[in-house]
Each structure stands twice: as structure tokens, then as C-alpha cells.
């Protein structure tokens, strides 16, 4: 099977610091791939390279087998790689519908839209409501309420729904449960599984091993700017994963990367 998103030999240096050192990456269709690694291992550089936030010094990124060259997150997004940032990138004072369509608003047809450039609010609200209920988030009653009036989990839900709404091929989730309580984390994990059930592959960056082991199909262990190994969470324990990540235990052979 061909990977939907892959990268080979990525290198990125900041002055004398090497953040990515000939790093490889593979995301298969329909899977949840967790990326774990110690602080400073270079996993956020890897994610930024994949989402277009930084340009790598060398190496190639392929989406659907075709070489891509993202110069900005917007570029990546237009190609179908949506990122849900840890900060969520939402405007707190604006409504849920406004936020979901920020930067890709729908305009009315005809004179009102073409000349007066009027937004098609009814359509935007209808689609936003539908996308939220697709993901079982319709406990949010009012699509026009400001995002800042939502709870942390609901905001995360809206951000994930926004990413899943626009025909995306890949969704990158950066620490989606880091700021949430136990119950809200639970809901967000269910949401992640729902998104996968809809066929969209997910890259999950998380420090939370129980969460990673619960939802991930494969785990990409990042260490010293490289992919150390890819493991199946069913074959290893959380403490094994932490040991690989920190170098306390040798990685399971070079063949593991073909898992």
C-alpha cells in the first residue's frame, strides 16, 4: 500500500543545532499514527515541515505519491493537509460558524455576492451545524455563539471539525488533550476515532502515553532528529516506548521501520 503522506531524508538545521537529521516519515491511509519523542527530539520540527510551517534544508515530502513543496501552512492546507494547532488558531470573540469558515468564506451567488460581496451566512451556518453533528458535537446548540463561551473540549471539537470538514486528506493534531481534563480528553479521543472511522488518516502528536496507546495504530518514535523506529502499540508496553524514546533501551532492530 502506498503511504498517503511520506517524507524522506528531511534535514533541518538552526545554526549549529540539527533539528532533523535525515528523517523519514510514513503515514498510511486510514490510520492513526502517533508521533512521540522526548523534548528536543525534533518532533515539532518534523510536524512543522509536514504542515508547511517551516521549510526543510533538504529532503522530500510526498503527498499521495506526488512530491510537494509547501511554502506556508495555507499551501499545505490547500493541498489537503490540515493542522489543528495546540493553540487551536481560533478567534475567541467570533462565532463557531465564523471560525469554521475563516479564510474560506462562502459568498452568496448573484449580485449580492459578486458585487456587494455578501457572505452566505445561512449556508455557512447550515454546513457548520452539519459538520458538528456528523462528529456528534451537537451538544453545541447555537452555531452563532462566540468560541470563547465554549469549554476547552468543545473548542477542540470545533477545531477538529473544522479540519475534518474541508475535504482534507490528512489531519495533524498537535497535543489535542494537553490542556483538557479527564472527561474532556475522553470525548476528544472518541472524536479522533470518529474521524478515522470516516477514513481520514491522522497524525497525533502527544506526550500522553495512555492516550497514544489507546488510539494509535502505529507509533513513530522520534529521537535525535531521526525516526528511531515505528512500533505497534499491541506489541510493546508504554514503558518500552518511553525507554526507546529516551534511549534507555535499544530500539527493536532496523526492520521495525517497515512494520
Amino acid at each position: 500500500m502506498q503511504p498517503i503522506l511520506s517524507a524522506s531524508n528531511l534535514c533541518k538545521r538552526y545554526g549549529r543545532v540539527t533539528a532533523l537529521d535525515n528523517c523519514d516519515f510514513e503515514l498510511m491511509p486510514g490510520e492513526i499514527l502517533a508521533v512521540i519523542g522526548d523534548n528536543g527530539a525534533g518532533k515539532s520540527s518534523l510536524i512543522k515541515a509536514l504542515s508547511g510551517a517551516i521549510k526543510v534544508d533538504s529532503g522530500d515530502i510526498f503527498l499521495d505519491g506526488k512530491k510537494v513543496n509547501f511554502s506556508s501552512p495555507i499551501d499545505a492546507r490547500n493541498a489537503g493537509v490540515e493542522t489543528v494547532y495546540q493553540t487551536l488558531a481560533m478567534s475567541p470573540a467570533l462565532s463557531i460558524a465564523d471560525n469554521m469558515f475563516m479564510g474560506r468564506e462562502l459568498r452568496k451567488s448573484g449580485f449580492m455576492g459578486k458585487v456587494l460581496r455578501q457572505l452566505d451566512r445561512p449556508a455557512m451556518e447550515r454546513i457548520a451545524r452539519q459538520k458538528l453533528s456528523d462528529l456528534g458535537l451537537m451538544t453545541i446548540q447555537n452555531i452563532n455563539q462566540a468560541v470563547e463561551t465554549l469549554s476547552g473540549g468543545q473548542r477542540q471539537g470545533v477545531a477538529v471539525a473544522r479540519a475534518a470538514a474541508f475535504g482534507s486528506k490528512v489531519i495533524i493534531l498537535d497535543e489535542p488533550t494537553a490542556a483538557l481534563g479527564v472527561k474532556e480528553s475522553r470525548r476528544v479521543l472518541d472524536l479522533i476515532l470518529d474521524v478515522r472511522a470516516r477514513g481520514i488518516p491522522i497524525i497525533l502528536i502527544s506526550h500522553n502515553m495512555p492516550h497514544v496507546f489507546e488510539v494509535a495504530d502505529r507509533i513513530h518514535v522520534h529521537r535525535l532528529g531521526q525516526r528511531l523506529c515505528v512500533i505497534d502499540p499491541k506489541d510493546y508496553t508504554m514503558s518500552d516506548a518511553v525507554a526507546f524514546m529516551t534511549g534507555a533501551k535499544a530500539a527493536p532492530g532496523t526492520t521495525a521501520s517497515a512494520a
Partner: peptide, 13 residues
């Protein structure tokens, strides 16, 4: 959006 949170606005396109 720019006045509310410029970074979020930029990342939203």
C-alpha cells in the same frame, strides 16, 4: 479576526 488574535487569523488562512 486580525484584531482578536493575529496568529490564529494567519494560521486560519
Amino acid at each position: 479576526a486580525v484584531g482578536d488574535d493575529p496568529e490564529a487569523a494567519e494560521l486560519s488562512g
